[in-house]
C-alpha cells in the first residue's frame, strides 16, 4: 500500500546534533511537532559505522545549506542510539562534517511507522521520506541493499513538491514533444467588449 499522504505517527526521539561552527555536539529531543509547519526529510540508513552510509550522508551534508535555504530540515535516521551517532560523528571524517540532526530510533518506532524496518536484522532499509508541513508523506523512495541515493535529486524533488504545494492547479506542465498535434484556435470573446 502506498504511503503517500500518510500522516506520520507521534514520536519522540533523541538526536545528536553538531551545528556548523559548534565546538561540541549535543543531544536534543525531536518530536513530531518539530516536523510540522516546515518541510522535512527523514533519511533512513541501515546502521552507523557502515561503508556506504557515510558517503550518502556526506553527500547530503554537502547540500544541507541548500535544503535549509528552501526551508527544509534534514534528519538522518538509523536504529542506533544517539550515543552511537555521537561516537560515529567523532570518529569518521565524512560523518564528522554532518551538521543536520542525526535521529536515533533504537525502538524502530519511526522505521516501523514508515514500513522500512527489517525485523530480522534490526535495521532500517535505505528509505527517504519527504514530509510536508502537515506531517504527511509527500514523496518517498526505498532502495534495496547498498544502492546509494542522490542528494541533488532529493533537493530537486523537495523543490518540485514545494512548487506544486504553493501553486496547486494554477500552473500547467511545461511539456511539449516534437510531433505533438498543433492546437486549433478556440474563440471566446465574451467579456472582451
Amino acid at each position: 500500500m502506498s504511503l503517500i499522504n500518510k500522516e506520520i505517527a507521534d514520536f519522540s526521539a533523541q538526536a545528536f546534533i553538531k551545528a556548523a561552527g559548534a565546538e561540541k555536539g549535543k543531544f536534543k529531543t525531536i518530536t513530531k511537532a518539530d516536523l510540522l509547519d516546515k518541510w522535512s526529510v527523514l533519511f533512513f540508513y541501515p546502521a552507523d559505522f557502515t561503508f556506504i552510509c557515510p558517503t550518502e550522508l556526506e553527500d547530503l551534508a554537502n547540500l544541507y545549506e541548500k535544503f535549509q535555504n528552501i526551508g527544509c530540515e534534514i534528519y538522518s535516521v538509523s536504529c542506533d542510539t544517539h550515543f552511537v551517532h555521537k561516537a560515529w560523528h567523532e570518529n569518521s571524517t565524512k560523518v564528522g562534517r554532518i551538521t543536520y540532526p542525526m535521529l536515533a530510533d533504537p525502538t524502530a518506532a519511526l522505521a516501523r511507522d514508515l514500513d522500512v524496518y527489517i525485523e530480522a536484522d534490526g535495521m532500517a532499509e535505505r528509505g527517504t521520506f519527504i514530509i510536508n508541513p502537515k506531517g504527511r508523506v509527500a514523496a518517498y523512495e526505498v532502495n534495496a541493499g547498498n544502492v546509494g541515493r542522490n542528494a541533488d535529486e532529493l533537493l530537486r524533488k523537495v523543490e518540485a513538491l514545494q512548487f506544486v504545494a504553493k501553486h496547486g492547479d494554477e500552473v500547467c506542465p511545461a511539456k511539449w514533444q516534437p510531433g505533438d498535434e498543433t492546437l486549433k484556435p478556440s474563440i471566446d470573446l465574451v467579456g472582451l467588449l
Binding site: E159, A160, V171, C172, P173, A174
Partner: peptide
C-alpha cells in the same frame, strides 16, 4: 530559467 510550469 529552470522552468517548473506555465504560465511563468
Amino acid at each position: 530559467y529552470d522552468l517548473k510550469g506555465v504560465p511563468c
